[in-house]
Design a protein around this nucleic acid. Structure first.
Lengths: 171, 171
DNA sequence: GACAGAATGTTATAACATAACAGTCTGTCT
DNA sequence: AGACAGACTGTTATGTTATAACATTCTGTC
């Protein structure tokens, strides 16, 4: 566990975010090269924008950021890039927020569980094999064959809990 | 386990759906009475429309069905009814589909897990305490305090698996 | 029957997403 | 190089989902 990560999977506010983004982009490039996928300028730029924060990015905000560079692309440009990145498993869509976050894990099995802080809006991705296993078991107990799981857990991250008073910790 | 339910939590095609709907509405009425909530005509009607099938209902489809009765309400009418029903925990919203299903369980703890068949579109709700527990554990291992969970599992229900060939069953 | 608060009606618009078709780029084959 | 196919992007228009804001009506209470 290196210093850029807390034990909580949430990014520390003082982490080296530039390095964090570079790593993500380099990782994405390697991944695409290895799989014969074309990480074009637009796609790369969209991924970069999404990586900018650990908060989820909304499609039209991404669009607006793309527009800053002189060109003013239309919605399909963004949605197509998002579709590519989703298919390449480089990002996740958060259905409950209509927003997108970068996939931070090197293993791209992609049945992630997302912890969404309702206070600071940060998202942490956990790939808990036990959760997956229990979900699979639960589903197959009902004769159901799982294709994909969407697990979005809303609540408060450790940082916000500490900042806003631990007295609210009912459970 | 009575004859109107399969072991799979998915409704059998030959179940007594009229009774199924009546039961849901009566249950909802009792619940509202007990909690001082007003299940008005519109709200009741929206719930009835949602109960009509075990498939998820979309807001604008509900709107259209409401319109069949001569009146032609605007979107806010439906969304307000949906909000009420969600708050009262009588329905669930399926984020990955932008759709709504009736909550079929008498216990209204409401951290349900939903099995969504991508073939027949039916939805089954399971309230698996083990899944909840594991999610809670997984989250708190990261210092995260859970408020609400959204678990949507997409795949194929037992009926569709049987109908469309068991040869696809990889796992 | 006047009042307060809840519920609904109404109009307009915001927010999210895609269809359809035209044009451009990239690599490959000859 | 030139022609071609397929992938990618641009552009216009529109579809889908949801809410803000304000007017009106309903319901129960004093």
């Amino acid at each position: 566990m290196d210093s850029s990560r807390t034990a909580s999977a949430f990014a520390a506010p003082d982490h080296d975010h530039t390095a964090c983004v570079s790593r993500a982009l380099a990782d994405a490039e390697a991944h695409c090269r290895a799989h014969g996928l074309r990480l074009t300028a637009t796609r790369r730029r969209v991924l970069e924008i999404i990586c900018q924060g650990h908060e989820p990015a909304k499609a039209y905000d991404i669009l607006e950021q793309l527009g800053r560079a002189g060109r003013h692309p239309a919605p399909p440009t963004v949605y197509r890039a998002l579709e590519f990145l989703l298919d390449a498993r480089l990002i996740h869509r958060i259905d409950s927020l209509n927003a997108y976050v970068a996939c931070v894990h090197p293993n791209r099995q992609h049945s992630a569980q997302l912890l969404v802080c309702s206070s600071c809006e940060q998202v942490a991705e956990i790939d808990d094999p036990q959760i997956q296993a229990v979900l699979d078991q639960g589903a197959s107990r009902h004769g159901f064959k799982v294709d994909s799981q969407t697990v979005e857990i809303h609540g408060r991250c450790p940082r916000c809990r500490a900042a806003q008073g631990a007295d609210h910790e009912g459970a």
